[in-house]
């Protein structure tokens, strides 16, 4: 974002905007930048909070009145949050008989079937909005593909981009199903459920390990799981190395 600010301002267009990592803005010095203390992925702070989003935008627009720059200011408010214990409970129990199926394909398909009605409910709550669809495959096709790769213990080295789009569609499907009910969710809690309780999380962890073991493909591992999912091993961080696996 700092680079775009630089080039657009140099071309004669006023720029202002949000910075999520203050140190990066301090270093690159875009013309006008409002640092906000929000989670990565949430530059306006909180979804569906019109008043709060307007306060963030107003603060960034006010930087346009500065007589000289670069200007880096801090937004004074934290994003409104709901205590984890008050967030809606996960509607799905993943301790179901199908999780004992012998193949990854069977387990992933069973999980998909279990989540489908919750995904539909969530989509209805969001008035039809869904981020699923970056890949050109249906969820059934994606689950069969991922399950097949896992059952054969192979990697999709001939189509890494298609694989990445497929797993993002699968993760998005799960996140949208797990947040089917109205309410303020803890993004971290939902991620923990995905990585710690689901067969998809366990399968992605297996892909992560396989890619990590091949030096020229190790970067692909980092595109599968977040640093927090892999790197954190204590406290509230996600410890996917502890995931149960049918093959362990």
């Amino acid at each position: 974002m700092c680079a775009l600010s630089y080039y657009l301002e140099a071309a004669g267009i006023l720029t202002t905007g949000i910075s999520l990592v203050r140190e990066n803005a301090e270093s690159m010095q875009p013309p006008r930048s409002l640092w906000v203390p929000f989670a990565l992925g949430r530059p306006l702070g909180k979804p569906n909070d019109t008043a709060f989003q307007h306060r963030v935008i107003d603060a960034a627009l006010s930087l346009l009145a500065a007589p000289a720059g670069p200007v880096l200011e801090d937004f004074a408010e934290e994003a409104p949050s709901t205590p984890v214990e008050d967030a809606p409970a996960c509607p799905v129990s993943f301790a179901n008989p199908n999780s004992n199926a012998e193949t990854w394909t069977a387990r992933l398909n069973a999980e998909h079937i279990q989540l489908q009605p919750w995904y539909e409910l969530g989509k209805r709550r969001r008035k039809g909005r869904s981020l699923v669809g970056a890949s050109s495959s249906t969820l059934t096709e994606i689950m069969n593909r991922l399950g097949g790769l896992l059952d054969r213990d192979t990697l999709p080295t001939d189509d890494l981009k298609g694989f990445k789009l497929a797993i993002e569609d699968a993760k998005t499907f799960y996140l949208e199903a797990l947040t089917a009910q109205p309410g303020d969710y803890s993004a971290q809690k939902i991620e923990q459920i995905l990585w710690q309780q689901t067969q998809l999380g366990a399968g992605l962890k297996r892909f992560y390990d396989r890619f990590s073991a091949i030096p020229k493909l190790a970067i692909m591992a980092r595109l599968i799981a977040s640093r927090q999912a892999i790197g954190g091993a204590t406290g509230d961080e996600i410890e996917i190395k502890s995931l149960p696996s049918k093959e362990d």
Binding site: A39, G41, L131, A134, L175, L223, S226
Partner: peptide, 23 residues
């Protein structure tokens, strides 16, 4: 929709509200 390559940020908020990212 989103096809960002990074796995290191929350996408659930954007699922709820496009304005969180694109106001």
């Amino acid at each position: 929709i989103m096809s960002h390559s990074s796995a290191n940020f929350d996408r659930s908020g954007f699922s709820e509200d496009v304005n969180l990212v694109f106001p």
